[in-house]
């Protein structure tokens, strides 16, 4: 981000930009809603930039089940965007954090409507039959 002074440098992967565009389109229908979503995302990014990934204002954890590149940690941020319900309201942002360089690369943004996928309808039926 351009605002100074900055404690952490934020960058983003093309996947993150694509995800954000898709989420804005899928989650919100009106311009007013998208404006609220923009404020929400900017606020998240500003906190990250100012305080880093371990900021108490953020709900985050280091992902241990997925290997990260050497010298980096993979962080998952748990977010609740405005005016969302259910699985689509459980938004996650993944970021690669290099604490030595104080850089954060935003990798992906998604909701639980994207991952993990709901079981296939046949599997749900099978589960019902199994009791």
């Amino acid at each position: 981000m351009n605002s100074a002074p900055s404690s952490w440098t934020l960058r983003r992967k093309p996947s993150f930009a694509k995800d954000l565009k898709r989420l804005a389109k899928d989650l919100y229908k009106s311009d007013r809603q998208r404006q609220d979503f923009l404020r929400f995302v900017v606020s998240f990014v500003e906190v990250l930039e100012r305080c880093g990934p371990s900021c108490p204002q953020l709900d985050a954890r280091v992902m241990t089940g997925v290997p990260a590149p050497e010298g980096c940690k993979l962080y998952k941020f748990y977010l609740r965007p405005p005016e969302t319900r259910g699985a689509s309201g459980e938004m996650r942002v993944l970021a690669l954090v290099n604490e030595a360089d104080r850089t954060i690369e935003l990798l992906m943004a998604y909701t639980h409507a994207d991952y993990p996928k709901q079981p296939h309808p046949e599997e749900i039926l099978q589960r019902i039959e199994e009791g």
Binding site: S15, A24, K25, L107, Y115
Partner: peptide, 30 residues
């Protein structure tokens, strides 16, 4: 597997600077 693939792809990409103007464009002009 879809998540693993998306993460693998994102990790392999080159990162770019992030700006507020870009966030605005991504969200307000989807």
């Amino acid at each position: 597997p879809a998540f693993q693939e998306a993460l693998r792809k994102a990790l392999a990409e080159e990162s770019l600077p992030l700006s507020k103007d870009e966030l605005r464009a991504l969200i307000l002009d989807p």
